[in-house]
Nucleic acid binder design. Sequence first.
DNA 1: TCTGTAGTTCGATAATAATCGAACAAACGA
DNA 2: TCGTTTGTTCGATTATTATCGAACTACAGA
Lengths: 104, 104
Amino acid sequence: MRALRHPKAEEIELTRVLYALSDPLRLDIVRQLDREGEATCAALDCGRPKSSMSHHFRVLRDAGVIRTRTDGTAHMNGLRRAELDRLFPGLLEIVLAQAAAKIQ
Amino acid sequence: MRALRHPKAEEIELTRVLYALSDPLRLDIVRQLDREGEATCAALDCGRPKSSMSHHFRVLRDAGVIRTRTDGTAHMNGLRRAELDRLFPGLLEIVLAQAAAKIQ
DNA sequence: TCTGTAGTTCGATAATAATCGAACAAACGA
DNA sequence: TCGTTTGTTCGATTATTATCGAACTACAGA
């Protein structure tokens, strides 16, 4: 597939990260990626059509929250944990601790 | 003035807080409130008309980030630091450390 | 009571974002 | 090479949010 854009670590903006994390569905994606390490888009079915899921992955990717690598026909997504922890120490931890809550 | 709604501590939702903080102007308000302890809306002039400022204060208030108390004709705004620190330990600190950046 | 001050609310408009079906693209296996 | 799988991108629609002037409300002081 075409190359997916990822911001460099120094290009990651706090406001964009906060925005990306301010949606319950995206927060759920982040929580699942934290538990499972890496996952394909399809593996994290949130009951939405794939175009909607793709959109949310894109928001997370553009914000610098996740990194997507191509593996055959699949896209493996993982949190950019080390980079985020360095830029905003503690943020992911806070968010993941809470994210276990509900998702409608 | 009429009573302003404030969510109870246990009603504060992480996603709403993150959303409220995901705007550069609101982040700037939060940063100023942190430095100055408490401030009126007018004191934090961000170059917007007061109706716009009022809107952003409302978003912060509705999310549970700030508390507004009436003092004569003025509204004193302050961070709900203790409650936020208890609910999301470290979040404000992270956000304030970064918020010193730019605001367009 | 009249006036000024401080901020909210209303109403309209513009800008952003979410949603989802459909078309498309890339890689793989048969 | 032909289908299958996996996800992206397009396009249109809807929903949410920001913006700002104008009207409004409440309080305080002269």
